Amino acid sequence: MKKTAAVALIAAPLLLAAYGVVRIVGKSDGGYGPGLDWQAAHLLALAGVVLFVPAVLGLGALLPRGAWRSGSVAGTMVGLAASMVQFGADIWFALRADDKAGMQALSGDFGDIPGVDLVVYQVGPQLFFVGLLVLAILAARARRLPWWSPVVLLVGILLPPVTLDLLPLSGLLILAALWPATRGGRSAAGPAATAGSGVAGPAGLRPAAPASGGSRTAFAEDEVYAGPPPRLTP
């Protein structure tokens, strides 16, 4: 794996863990958002999502070329793009609003735009987590990751829906699952590596395409507001 991708693969989940820590600290005084703590947390999350782009590309480069690998990486990228829009929108709402009710009103207006709720909130971000898990499974099958990496990654992905206070642990588990991919080894993308790997995908295919699932982003909301369902990332 290239050095840039390896650094991104380490930094991205650490930034998501830092997002969770800042969020917990911000909520401790009962005044989380809008404000410095809200903006700091969401900027960390946005930076982490952005760094996952080279990280995912580097992880995909460890796999044999083919339509299935390309589809998995593309689906993950769509999820990352949706997550970027989501966090970026929350940062913008916090800049414009005087209080959380104002942020919620702006978020509601944004989410009411046709297609935004489905793409940015309901389905889009899920593709990131599902696609990342699919890539980890394929990398484990190709012996680019240990067998336990997809298991640890799945646990890390499933923790935030239980409670967002587990976001720091979730980020560390994602790091632990993907870190072995950063420890060198030539890419399997080249013709020689493809021919010599001896590893076939499920049912003789290469990487399986990501499936959509879940509701909203894995960073589920635990703050409850009156009125329509909130679209802000907490």
Rank of each mutant, 00 (worst) to 15 (best):
A5I: 08
I10L: 13
P13D: 04
R23Q: 06
I24E: 11
I24A: 11
S28C: 06
L36A: 09
D37I: 04
A41H: 00
A41T: 00
A41V: 00
H42M: 03
L43Q: 02
A47T: 05
G48K: 00
L51I: 03
L51K: 13
V53E: 06
P54V: 02
V56I: 12
L57R: 15
L59N: 10
L62M: 09
L63C: 06
A67L: 10
S70N: 14
G71I: 05
A81K: 02
Q86L: 11
D90M: 02
R96V: 05
A97V: 10
A97R: 15
K100Y: 09
A101K: 15
G102H: 12
Q104Y: 11
G108N: 12
D112V: 01
V116E: 07
V116S: 07
D117A: 12
V119Y: 07
V120S: 11
V120R: 15
Q126T: 05
L135C: 01
A140I: 04
R141K: 14
R143E: 10
R144I: 01
L145Q: 13
P146E: 05
W148Y: 14
V151R: 04
V152S: 06
L153T: 08
G156H: 11
I157A: 02
L159V: 00
P161I: 04
L166M: 10
L172T: 03
L172D: 03
L175A: 01
L175T: 01
A177R: 14
L178W: 08
W179A: 13
G190N: 04
G190P: 03
G190M: 01
A193T: 00
V199M: 10
G201V: 05
A203C: 04
P207W: 08
A208I: 09
P210Q: 08
A211I: 06
G214P: 14
G214F: 07
S215F: 13
R216P: 07
A218N: 15
D222H: 15
V224S: 15
G227L: 09
P230E: 08
